[in-house]
């Protein structure tokens, strides 16, 4: 019995030490992510795994592919040189902000709109893409515009601002929030809702390989996508912004737009092209 008592004392003190060291660990705000990444020559990006054209895991090799992935790689190279590496962590709309705040990732490039609510919690780079919220419906659906969704069911994704936006346009719509876009689209196909709402560019990606479904009506909001960065990381933020405008000015940006969106029905890529050097945002 005596020995067990010793054991008890040891375990309790171990727990205590663990908690204390945990609390004492360097807090995120005091770290300089720009300098850390410079040393490791790696930027860890939070990206989507389920969004065709933007960020999608390829079944063939398990790699993430899409416009945001390529853009993240280009920005990383502009920031830290040709041999710098972009590391990718797949996130969902629900997990991206907690992961950024916790420091699992250095930046979010995952179809995230710059909104005032989010700006209270995190910082954004300049916008890197201009999307707009729209709806995806089945061919022949009676829904012509977002206002038609009153008293109907609309599907969205947890953590996206689309679910809050749609309530402004169709206050009587019932909104179902699913964990990710793959499930949201499948739920739409299963008839769980009358329309799926999110940004037009994501919906266009869905429409590509789902014949029988189409983007309906004009985009009813503007959704400038920004790279999410932790508050207080001013060095990192200005480096990202500088790299982004370089990518836009040297024509890389437009090349990527044409590569990913050049041939997407229902989506006019010319609207999102950024003129070389004329749009210095």
């Amino acid at each position: 019995m005596k020995r067990l008592k010793y054991l008890a004392v040891i375990i309790t003190s171990l727990l205590l030490v663990f908690t204390l060291t945990a609390c004492g660990s360097q807090s995120l705000s005091s770290q300089n992510i720009y300098e850390n990444d410079k040393k490791s020559k790696t930027v860890t990006w939070g990206v989507k795994a389920d969004t065709k054209l933007l960020g999608l895991v390829d079944v063939k090799d398990g790699q993430e592919k899409g416009f945001e992935i390529d853009l993240a790689k280009a920005i990383t190279k502009k920031m830290y040189g040709k041999d710098a590496k972009a590391k990718f962590v797949t996130v969902t709309s629900q997990s991206r902000i907690p992961l950024l705040k916790n420091g699992n990732i250095d930046a979010i490039i995952a179809t995230m709109t710059i909104t005032p609510e989010r700006q209270k919690t995190i910082d954004f780079s300049n916008s890197y893409f201009d999307a707009g919220q729209s709806i995806l419906v089945k061919d022949g659906s009676p829904i012509k515009k977002v206002q038609d969704l009153n008293n109907r069911t609309i599907i969205g994704v947890v953590g996206s601002n689309s679910v809050q936006n749609v309530k402004k346009f169709a206050p009587k719509a019932q909104v179902l929030q699913l964990p990710d876009y793959a499930q949201a689209l499948t739920a739409l196909k299963s008839g769980q809702g009358d329309a799926l709402t999110t940004d037009n560019v994501i919906l266009a990606g869905m429409a590509v390989n789902n014949p029988g479904y189409k983007l309906q009506g004009k985009a009813f909001t503007t959704e400038p996508y920004g790279i999410g960065i932790n508050k207080g990381q001013t060095d990192f933020k200005s480096a990202v912004n500088k790299a982004l405008s370089e990518v836009e000015n040297d024509g890389t940006y437009n090349k990527l737009i044409i590569k990913w969106f050049g041939n997407v029905p229902g989506f006019n890529y010319k609207e999102v092209l950024r003129n070389d050097s004329s749009t210095n945002k």
Binding site: Q94, I97, P98, K101, G159, L178, P179
Partner: peptide, 23 residues
């Protein structure tokens, strides 16, 4: 139920967490 929009406690928790950012 949270996976299938079943309105349960976990579903509401996810929705609240991602609106308030107070995970």
């Amino acid at each position: 139920l949270a996976f299938v929009a079943g309105f349960d406690l976990m579903y509401q928790g996810n929705a609240i967490a991602s609106q308030t950012f107070d995970t």
